[in-house]
Design a protein around this nucleic acid. Structure first.
Length: 468
RNA sequence: GCCCCCAUCGUCUAGUGGCCUAGGACACCACCCUUUCAAGGUGGCGGCACGGGUUCGAAUCCCGUUGGGGGUGCCA
């Protein structure tokens, strides 16, 4: 695959961050449209943290949002910890070229010296001491005089004064490479042409750009994406916020909804917000990306998800709900679940779901031996004598009804309601509570039809006995 | 402290000097529809942070202020 090369470099932390997912999506849209490559690099210089299951988790999360490792545009995964030799070699090259120097001061030494001299940061103390490598010696980059201009595709040119950038560490005292170096070397060796990442990296970009130049290469195209923030306007983090993509997947969010929503954070498709991926991929332009941080709004995500759920065919919807319907923590035992019954009710529950996980709670009464009674609803509903009378009359009427269909059941109850001066909206309440246990739920008569005569009457009689 | 970024309804955004008495979406409110709850329909509320310029004309350009965020590690 020729063309531009993009990359994402998640760290193996055990979950995939939604912010990382958005960055991945932006990279993916461009890589595919431009006929380029999307490189996945698991980034951690510490091999111990590259747990195989975490890597698989990242690959699964990417696949969920449509970034498949089987796609010809996909390359990787690579493991940064396996590339350490190249990092050290690059550091050596930098040292030999005079772009880096060794220093024997520890962090504590620097701090102590700063205290005495009233300075801040590393002051380039070992720049001209001519030290060589040795135990405890760190390799520092020799920041050249002048300015560094970062050409950023979303923000334009950003200028930094090199004098304000301290000689940063490339190799630790134990000889291991630092992240900033490893990152540059890997991007270079993997011939990455475009680096799209979150804005938090912008401040460190001049350091990386100087390394690219010192190593004799032209820096890649940079593009820093607006941060994703919480209601406090701080960047979303695992500690405070729900950031694991896997969690949204497990809670019944549709990947199409998540993808579409994520893409609208910092960018808007032409026309309507709700757009299929093909359209997004064809339209996405870095130049159109916003500059300001975006609030990750669960409510809007929920709205997108509801919208995408409604777009599903009934069969797709039913199939998509299955895992939650048959889960161990479903509100009814899996062996009582019946596919045909669910399918019959599916059109009615589909517009009532914000997530796929919601479905089980809407139709639980169909698959439970006895409905779960909402005490407050029960008490309130049967506190009225008319309600009790309606229940009694409808038991009688339903017992003898010839045609057990939603329409017939409805007409019958309408007549009973009128005889007690009640409109259908009020008259259906006692039957609903008796059969489903709640005052709210899917359309009642359709549910009764599906539940069947015997079970419906059994529940109604049981309720009648209880309120008598 | 220093450096960098950002600033349009509560939120995500459209807007690139006249089409803006600022458009859409989510949320919220009201009404309609209705078998409860949803969904759907209609309508409403609500914003260019502030102060200076530039210009015939500024949400749009410039400067400053204020506010918010990020970075500044022998973390990634």
């Amino acid at each position: 695959m020729t063309g531009p090369r993009f990359r994402i470099a998640p760290s193996p932390t055990g979950y995939f961050h939604v912010g990382g997912a958005r960055t991945a999506l932006f990279n993916w849209a461009l890589a595919r449209r431009l006929g380029g490559t999307f490189v996945l690099r698991i980034e951690d210089t510490d091999a111990e943290r590259n747990q195989p299951e975490w890597t698989q988790g990242i690959i699964d999360a990417l696949a969920w949002i449509g970034i498949s490792k089987d796609d010809p545009h996909f390359e990787g995964p690579y493991f940064q910890s396996e590339l350490a030799a190249a990092h050290v070699a690059a550091a050596q090259q930098l040292f030999e070229g005079g772009h880096a120097y060794y220093c024997d001061m520890t962090a504590a030494d620097v701090e102590a010296r700063n205290k005495v001299e009233g300075n801040q940061g590393y002051q380039g103390w070992s720049r001209d001491r001519g030290l060589g490598p040795g135990p405890g010696h760190v390799l520092r980059f020799r920041v050249p005089p002048g300015n560094t201009v970062v050409h950023d595709l979303v923000r334009g040119d950003v200028e930094f004064d090199n004098a304000l950038i301290e000689d940063f560490v490339l190799l630790r005292g134990n000889g291991s490479p630092m992240f900033l170096l490893a990152n540059v070397v890997d991007d270079m060796n993997m011939r990455i042409s475009h680096v799209l990442r979150a804005e938090e990296h912008l401040s460190n970009t001049p350091k990386q750009q100087m390394m690219w130049q010192a190593l004799g290469h032209e820096a890649p195209v940079w593009a820093h994406l607006p941060l994703l923030v919480n209601e406090q306007r701080k960047k979303i983090s695992k500690r405070r916020d729900k950031v694991a993509l896997e969690q949204y997947r497990d809670e019944g969010y549709l990947p199409q909804a998540m993808v579409n929503y994520l893409m609208t954070l910092g960018w808007t498709p032409k026309g309507e917000e709700i757009q299929p991926w093909a359209h997004i991929e064809g339209d996405f332009l870095l130049e159109d990306v916003n500059h300001s941080p975006a609030f990750f709004d669960l409510k809007k995500l929920a709205a997108f998800n509801g919208e995408y759920i409604r777009q599903l065919t009934v069969e797709q919807f039913a199939a998509a709900c299955r895992p939650w319907l048959l889960a161990d923590d479903a509100p009814f035992p899996a062996d009582r679940f019946d596919e045909a019954t669910f399918l019959a009710m599916a059109p009615h529950i589909q517009p009532r779901c914000v997530t796929l996980a919601d479905a089980a709670g809407v139709i639980d009464f169909l698959f439970l031996a006895d409905p779960v009674i909402d005490e407050a609803a029960w008490t309130k509903t049967f506190s009225s004598p008319e309600a009790v009378a309606v229940l009694r009359d409808s038991v009688h009427a339903y017992d003898g009804i010839a045609d057990w269909s939603a329409d017939a059941l409805k007409s019958s109850l309408e007549v009973i309601g009128e005889s007690h001066g009640l409109k259908l909206g009020k008259a259906q309440a006692p039957v609903r509570v008796a059969v489903t246990g709640r005052t709210i739920g899917p359309p009642l008569f359709e549910a009764l039809e599906v539940l069947g005569r015997d079970e419906t009457l059994r529940r109604m009689r049981s309720a009648e006995a209880a309120v008598a």
